[in-house]
Design a protein around this nucleic acid. Structure first.
Lengths: 218, 218
DNA sequence: GGATGTATACGGGCATACTTATATCCACAA
DNA sequence: TTGTGGATATAAGTATGCCCGTATACATCC
């Protein structure tokens, strides 16, 4: 696993993380020369990075008008969660029968790490790692790619969720139930837990966003 | 609906169509200077176009090694069709209850156009238009975007299917059955027809590719 | 006073030039 | 003869500069 091969990739990674952890807020205009100066590179790799992030749905680009961090209203959050439910249920259904014990142990370790982790910034990545571990045996690379893409797109909002201790505890309980169902090879039960888990996340998030007024449109 | 606003978009559109209709075959290296000279522009907009196509899954880029038309083996075709089944079933389920009569009429007109159309190159676009018309009322923009993306990715292979008269006739029969079920607001029946339709397409395509030896890996 | 036209500034698209990385081939040695 | 090392060529990555489209503000006309 080698690091980023081009400057554009490095820039994309830094920007992605900055957007995910809230350092750069939704709607912020991303000017090429400004970023170029900050990163110490020219505008060209920054352009490439912005295109990459646009493809991931994190940034929106309007020709001749420039790029900005994609704004998401509650409707779009709902859409993403509806898609996550669809995609991840399918991945889980395909994966459960073939899930190796080692993968399940790996997933359990991730849950323990989440409980032990004090650094807020790590929770998002660990949360994702747990979910992806369970889907690992689904056998459809594109499906996994789509799931990862949607995690990326929603990451900065998921982190809002995870900063809430109440939600985090409930979430962990559900995670362990989910893992147990997978160990029993009870795919149907696992799926129903997952769906419930995602619905709660969606509802919690939508109401949080509505009251925080983060949903102002562009 | 205005045309492409930038050179990069024009280039992307031309390349996408050329790849879809087989003018540029899978595995063909896409060199920046070469394309720049052919199109009469510099490498920069070509780079942008290639990144765009990479995001769509039509082109694969390896840093410092260049871009090539993405190769797809039969396993990947199967994956895409499995995803289409998942995504389009859901879109149809959501859309059927709210489908306006006008949209259904529009879909029917598209079917008539397919029957009348003699130009092979148009079938792909018409086929897509029919399917998308039925999903129009699903209410999830991202879902529609994903469906369109998968149509794009598989387009050049779908055209292989559609050039087969036998398949085309069967396909049209299923299309009309599907439309009828939608008119009756029978979502379950519509979905089962759609799933069958896509499974047939997948199987026909996979065997066609296997015997034509188009599945050689990179 | 409101609407329409015009000037100016800002910023992104595109072109050109330079740098760096990878692959290929040939020379030389084991 | 084969393998390894380095030189060279090719093509992508990156830097910089210019041009043009869009926006904002101010002026002018109805």
């Amino acid at each position: 696993m080698q690091g980023p091969r081009t400057v554009a990739e490095q820039v994309a990674n830094v920007l992605r993380e900055a957007i995910a952890n809230g350092t750069i807020k939704a709607g912020t205009p991303l000017r090429q020369d400004e970023l170029a100066e900050q990163f110490g590179f020219s505008r060209m790799p920054i352009r490439d990075a912005l295109r990459q992030l646009e493809a991931e749905g994190i940034v929106s680009i309007h020709p001749t008008k420039g790029a900005q961090v994609a704004r998401m209203d509650s409707a779009e959050i709902s859409e993403i969660y509806a898609l996550r439910e669809l995609l991840e249920s399918e991945a889980l259904r395909l994966s459960v029968p073939g899930l190796a014990g080692a993968k399940l142990d790996e997933a359990e370790q991730v849950l323990d790490q989440i409980d032990a982790e004090r650094n807020v910034g790590r929770w998002g990545a660990l949360n994702r790692a747990f979910h992806l571990a369970l889907y690992d045996a689904c056998g459809n690379h594109r499906l996994l790619g789509l799931i990862e893409a949607h995690h990326n797109a929603a990451d900065r909002y998921v982190r809002i969720l995870l900063s809430n201790l109440d939600y985090r505890n409930r979430s962990q309980t559900e995670h362990r139930d989910l893992l147990a169902a997978c160990r029993r090879r009870d795919g149907d039960k696992a799926i129903s837990i997952l769906r419930q888990h995602l619905r709660e996340g969606s509802e919690t998030l939508v109401s949080a966003i509505r009251e925080d007024g983060l949903s102002r449109k562009s």
